[in-house]
Amino acid sequence: MKFDDKIPIYYQIKNYIYRQIIIGELAPGDKLPAVRQLAVDLTVNVNTVQRALGELISEKIIEPQRGKGNFVTEDKQTIEKLKKLLITDQLKELYENLHKLNVTDQEILNYLQDYINERKQVQS
């Protein structure tokens, strides 16, 4: 994984794990690799991985089991909420950027619909 050195790495690790969970690469109940293994795989400091996991644990996205390791939550609602949060983040950015271009709400909807139609045509 390539990190952007301008963004805190613990934050990028969190996002990486979020995405793994959303796309199902890490399924509910799956065990995460050991902290040190994650650090080696991502070529980052162990302390940084620990910080990222610590936050994921307090967000209840992952659950530590004593002596066994860290597991992806099996609570479907938590994962659903996470997915919604990530989608909202993307929408927020799109919405704000378009507003800066003086595009109205209705226009955003129209443009988005047109864009989706265009993409469909490209694919078919």
Partner: peptide, 15 residues
């Protein structure tokens, strides 16, 4: 702290 440089100044360490 390396992470502080990234979060506080939005800069890479090198920069």
């Amino acid at each position: 702290s390396a992470e502080e440089i990234r979060s506080k100044y939005a800069e890479g360490i090198e920069q």
